[in-house]
Design a protein around this nucleic acid. Sequence first.
DNA 1: AAAAAAG
Length: 600
Amino acid sequence: MTWTGMFSESTRKTTRPTRPRYLPPHMRSPQIGNASFLETGAPELTRPRFYSPQLAQSTRGRGPWLTARRNPNWEDEKFDELEVVDDTLEEANVTNNLEAYDDIPVQASGDNIPPPVKTFSEIDLGDGLKQNIRRCNYIKPTPIQRHAIPIAVAGRDLMACAQTGSGKTAAFCFPIISGVLKDSLSVTRRVGGGSEVACPLALILAPTRELSCQIYEEAKKFAYMTRVQIAVAYGGTSIYHQLRRLERGVDILVATPGRLVDMIERAKVSLGMIKYLALDEADRMLDMGFEPQIRRIVEQMDMPPPGTRQTMLFSATFPDEIQRFASDFLLDYVFLAVGRVGSSTDLIVQRVELVQEMDKRNHLLNLLRTQRSNGTPHSKHALTLVFVETKRGADKLERWLSRNGFSAIAMHGDKVQMEREQALRSFKSGATPILVATDVASRGLDIPHVAHVINFDMPKNIDDYVHRIGRTGRAGKFGLATAFFSDKNLHLAKSLAEVMKESSQEVPTWLIQNAENYSASGRSGWVRHRGVDYGGYDLRKDIASSSTYNDTYAVPAIDGQYAPTFLGSGGDDHWVASDMNLNAAAPPYGYGSVVASGWD
DNA sequence: AAAAAAG
């Protein structure tokens, strides 16, 4: 049996910082003047008053000695060599649409589920990590963190549906770092000098190189000044330097599958000592393209079997069939879903426009021109992310936009890694305020200031749509998502209408009409029509014999705040962790501040 | 009929 509950989240103001400080993605650039945004239907292009790029620049590239003289707490400065924001921000944040998101639905199922905590201090994560959590200004755990961390720290396997922006990365990093810290085996005993094999205790896998980097950077912050050694392994760059790094010993390895396999085959890495395995964007990692590789790494190398390692799978979407694959990797796992589709998601305005293929380019130009004339020109603070279907299409659209006066850059898997990273940097910095990307950029990446996501080509499945539009509307900022819907996309009509409806969007009648005519039943080739199935519920519930899972877990009332307001209501509730929800929900959580990139 | 991930 499972329980389902709605929890009240009360938010509160945090103390105003006395000095410029790191600002987490979800708290960056809270929207200001959103009324104009809604009226024009164009992204808010006004430069947020609280952001200070000059200030951010000024601390960059400085040696610790320099900072040390200025500030005795230089460690903290070095710790986040990132964006420094001035403190006027804080206030703007906390006043953001709080009430609408006070109730966060949480569903958990499985045997003997460790109860959630209300604060980080309720769990012994170790002094070093605890200090870093403070350094990160993590005031209060997010819902996914409150639930997932106790489960993970208890050593349980976990399948977690967590909304983007809800603190997923920390939710699996904290328990892993904490576990490594408690491990008595020093890293030097697991790797010798010379060419010995690196034996990490933890492996974190991600579907793209850039996402691996992001997680790596994030984990480094969490492990700052502890003895926990973190390394990253991904393709498209010299393996030599990565191997040299491994020779120094590694506790936690963040990797993409290809390069990892390469290293294992070269006998530079052994998975024999793995105690923790985490798959980020787990449904992607287990989809048709990736599944064989993952299976190879998890089942056919020297990775300890389920039961002797701890496995954690995280994603915002989790279709049934993927849950089935996934359960092969897990033992007696807890299923967790945070967030619900259908709750207010007015932070992302979703528009669908019926555009024929041949008209798309001009339509895009008109859209961008309107956007430009509506407000400040594209800038660091109003980035537009355009998704296309193919790599060639990305290049062609980049050229088309450039020829027509829009500064655009393309990012896709046919570019060499340097170009990919350069494109991303150029976009993030605002130097090239339009990024034309394939799905390489659809998941996990945290790009502040994306005001508008345009699905120039619709993705093949609705999950990707959810992930793509989740690149905007983050950090409590309003976001706009525009979809160019052509007759090639009719199979998506139903699921798209469903997604929009669930996030309180206005669904055009023509779309509803088509949704009825084209119920997503067809299945052909590699196109997987799944209708609306993000897997917001535990697949095991469908299994006839529920005896294995009959431990009911009621959430203890803590200060009256955690008392479920309802339990297992009617069955009509659709529990899903969707990006849209998550975006909407992010600011109200009121985690004070914090979190870093990779907040996804 | 695709994107991603090794070189």
